[in-house]
Amino acid sequence: MKTAGISLADACAQAQARIEKMPTRQKTVTCPLCGEPFLSFGDLTAHYLAVHPEAVAPVEVRMTVNGRDCCLIIEPQMTLKEVLQFHLGLTGAKQMCDRGQCGSCTVIMDGKPTLSCNVLAADCGGKTVETVEGIAVQPKWRPLIDAYCKWDAMQCGYCTPGFLVAAKCLLDRNPHPTEEDIKEALSGNICICGTYPRHSQAILEAVSYMVKGGEQNA
């Protein structure tokens, strides 16, 4: 069917492209202080010792983001949110409060909802991280996204990815939530556009659709 504006397929394809474009490894390593390029993390570390002995040196972290193994050279004070945005080019985790008080930057880490602004990327070695882009590319979750859009579970849309990730976490743990379960699971996500009841509506509709789909497949 023809869709007005950006279609579900368009958006999911964009998410897929963003994930594919993630620079999971840096071929050359540039000194963030003076811009000098190096071939390896070891060379950069040596450069710091020699040239910027007082400065905080970058660290190397390996984690899996949206199914892709990443080896990242980051500054130790960077949050997971910053790394997702500035190193990996993902915009799904949004910055609203930057203090773990609003839920807009929610991602899934090792299966649990996690506020990416409130976690140091340097602590995430070996972790598996899934962002809203990673959810969008899984056909299983398209009904959830579709229901969100059909029910306007968003107005300005800024907090929406955080809600969607929290909703996905809920459904992972509890595939048949009640309205109360939904309210509780989304209670760490702030929206100022008045969409709260829309989320329950969308999630419940997605659940019923997904159950039907499951039965048909079986």
Binding site: G100, K112, P113, A166
Partner: peptide, 8 residues
């Protein structure tokens, strides 16, 4: 706190 904060 909130659901996500409790998990971490």
């Amino acid at each position: 706190a909130s659901p996500a904060l409790r998990e971490n």
